[in-house]
C-alpha cells in the first residue's frame, strides 16, 4: 500500500491519509478516533498549533535495575529512539482561545504512556508552573497506568501528582482532565479522575482495573460497552463525551466559564 493510503483499524476501509489528517485523525467513514501522539495533541489544542515545550531536559533512570525480557534501561533507549521523546509525557505552554494554559499530554507510543518517576515529576512541575503563573492546567491522558519497571516509585507518583492538583484547586485554578483511549490503572486512579471537568473522547477505554483482570477475577463475561466513555458518562464519572473535532471549542468555552471571562 502506498504511504498515501491507510486502513482504518475499526471499519477496515482504505482511506486517503490526507482525509484523516484533515479530520483531526478521525476516520471520515466510521468516526473511529485514531490515537494521537503527545505533540499532535498539543498542536491540536493550542492556538495556531503554537506552544513552548517545557521540562524536556528531565530524563528517566533505571533505579531498580529492572530486567524482564530485556533490561529497563534498554527499553527506555528503544522507546526514546522510536518516539524521539525523552519520556511518555510532553509539557506545553501557550494559549488556547487566547488564554494562557499549561497542557501536559501523555504519549501512548512511549511504553504505553505509563507513569514512572519522570511522568510524575513532569506532571507535577506543570501543575506547579500553572500555580506559579496562576493559569489553568489541562492533562490529556492516554496510559496503561503506573510503570512497573520503577516499582513503588511509580506508585508514589500517583500521590505526588494528586497532591499538586490539590494545591491548584486550593488556589482556585481550574484543572481539566481529557481522557483518551485507553486510560487505566494508576493514571486513572490519580490525576486523570481529578478534573474540575473530566472529558472523554468517544468510545475510549477508561477504568481502574483492566477488563481482562476483571474477567479473570469474576469469571464472567463483561457487559457490552463496559468501561467505555459512554458507560462512564451514564455512571456519573465524567462530565461529557466530546468528539475530537469539538474538543478545542469545548475547552475554550470551559476555560471561559471557569475563568469567568465571557466572550
Amino acid at each position: 500500500m502506498s504511504s498515501l493510503w491507510t486502513r482504518c483499524n475499526n471499519c477496515q476501509r482504505i482511506l486517503y491519509k490526507e482525509d484523516i489528517l484533515d479530520n483531526h485523525s478521525v476516520c471520515p467513514e466510521c468516526a473511529f478516533h485514531f490515537r494521537l501522539s503527545a505533540s499532535e495533541w498539543l498542536a491540536m489544542l493550542y492556538d495556531d498549533g503554537q506552544f513552548d515545550v517545557c521540562d524536556h531536559e528531565i530524563k528517566p533512570q533505571d533505579p531498580l535495575n529492572f530486567v524482564d525480557s530485556q533490561p529497563y534501561h534498554k527499553r527506555l533507549a528503544d522507546n526514546q529512539r522510536k518516539t524521539s521523546l525523552p519520556e511518555a509525557v510532553v509539557n506545553g505552554l501557550g494559549t488556547i482561545g487566547g488564554m494562557r494554559v499549561a497542557v501536559s499530554a501523555l504519549d501512548f507510543a512511549f511504553m504505553g504512556g505509563s507513569m514512572g518517576s519522570v511522568v510524575g515529576e513532569k506532571i507535577t512541575r506543570a501543575a506547579e508552573r500553572a500555580l506559579a503563573e496562576k493559569i489553568p492546567f489541562i492533562i490529556v491522558s492516554c496510559s496503561g497506568g503506573a510503570r512497573m519497571q520503577e516499582g513503588a516509585l511509580s506508585l508514589m507518583q500517583m500521590v505526588k501528582t494528586s497532591a499538586a492538583l490539590g494545591r491548584l484547586e486550593k488556589a482556585g485554578l481550574p484543572f481539566f482532565s481529557v481522557l483518551a483511549d485507553p486510560t487505566t490503572g494508576g493514571v486513572t486512579a490519580s490525576f486523570a479522575m481529578l478534573g474540575n471537568l473530566n472529558i472523554a473522547e468517544p468510545n475510549a477505554l477508561i477504568g481502574f482495573a483492566g477488563p481482562r483482570v476483571i474477567e479473570q477475577t469474576i469469571k464472567e463475561k463483561l457487559p457490552k460497552g463496559f468501561q467505555r466513555s459512554e458507560f462512564l458518562l451514564s455512571h456519573g464519572m465524567i462530565d461529557e463525551v466530546v468528539p475530537r473535532k469539538n474538543l478545542r471549542p469545548y475547552l475554550v468555552r470551559a476555560l471561559r466559564l471557569f475563568l469567568n471571562k465571557s466572550a
Partner: peptide
C-alpha cells in the same frame, strides 16, 4: 489491592482512590 469488579468500576474505583490521595495530601 482494590477489588477489580464490575460494580467497583461502575461506582468509580479509580475516582474514589484518586480523591483520597488528594484529600490525604492536604
Amino acid at each position: 489491592g482494590a477489588y477489580p469488579g464490575i460494580g467497583a468500576e461502575e461506582r468509580g474505583q479509580a475516582e474514589a482512590i484518586a480523591f483520597n490521595l488528594k484529600v490525604m495530601s492536604g
